[in-house]
């Protein structure tokens, strides 16, 4: 678990130390969000670092109950703005498509998916439409509630739930296809 105990704090005032205490425990979550918002591993680490530097600079103005949600929101905003600047370096996702249910009656082999390769899951996730992937990353990987995600993204809670549901349906379908490849 990341913590502030290994960090040189002699240059820091009380606010700096308070920042470390509040922010460093969320490093894993911020990394997961960054990792699945960008394609490149090193770019994800750059994004995490930039997120923490921005948050550190703005900590004095941070209000609100959840430091984790605040950090994740900064991360998403940075990813968005960096994505605009470096369009070719961010995740290339499929264009959002209208929801098409998978073939009715097709059974998803849960046990097989539970053992599927992590890289395959990551690959399938990267191929989801942007909004669905974002809802899944924030809920299933970062552990936010639908209400928190709705607030972060500025959209209704039901929309978040619907995007996550549709994204998971599509993800399961992609993984089954992957699993059935010879």
């Amino acid at each position: 678990m990341p913590g502030a105990n290994t960090i040189e704090t002699s240059h820091m005032d009380d606010q700096g130390r308070a920042f470390l205490e509040a922010a460093m425990p969320h490093l894993d979550v911020v990394y997961r969000v960054a990792r699945h918002t960008t394609r490149d591993h090193h770019h994800a680490e750059d994004l995490v670092q930039e997120t923490y530097l921005r948050a550190f600079a703005a900590f004095g103005t941070h209000r609100g109950p959840s430091t984790k949600a605040w950090l994740v929101t900064i991360c998403l905003n940075l990813a968005r703005s960096q994505g605009r600047r470096r369009a070719r370096r961010v995740v290339e996702t499929a264009m959002p498509e209208p929801y098409e249910p998978e073939a009715p009656g097709v059974s998803v082999p849960e046990e097989a998916l539970a053992n599927i390769d992590r890289a395959a899951v990551s690959h399938a996730l990267a191929h989801l439409p942007d909004e669905q992937r974002q809802a899944i990353v924030l809920m299933d990987l970062a552990g936010h509630s639908a209400s928190e995600v709705a607030e972060m993204l500025g959209c209704p809670r039901n929309t978040v739930l619907s995007r996550a549901f549709r994204g998971r349906q599509r993800l399961a379908s992609l993984l089954v296809e992957e699993d059935m490849k010879p």
């Binding site: 990341p2 490093l27 894993d28 911020v30 990394y31 997961r32 699945h36 995490v48 998978e102 059974s107 998803v108 082999p109 849960e110 998916l113 539970a114 599927i116 992590r118 899951v121 990551s122 996730l125 899944i136 299933d140 990987l141 549901f165 994204g167 998971r168 349906q169 993800l171 399961a172 379908s173 993984l175």
Partner: peptide
């Protein structure tokens, strides 16, 4: 079932930094 299977698979991506 697909929703539950996807959540289970996604568990693998909850890795540490």
């Amino acid at each position: 079932k697909a929703d539950r299977a996807a959540r289970l698979a996604l568990e693998q991506l909850r890795q540490p930094a």
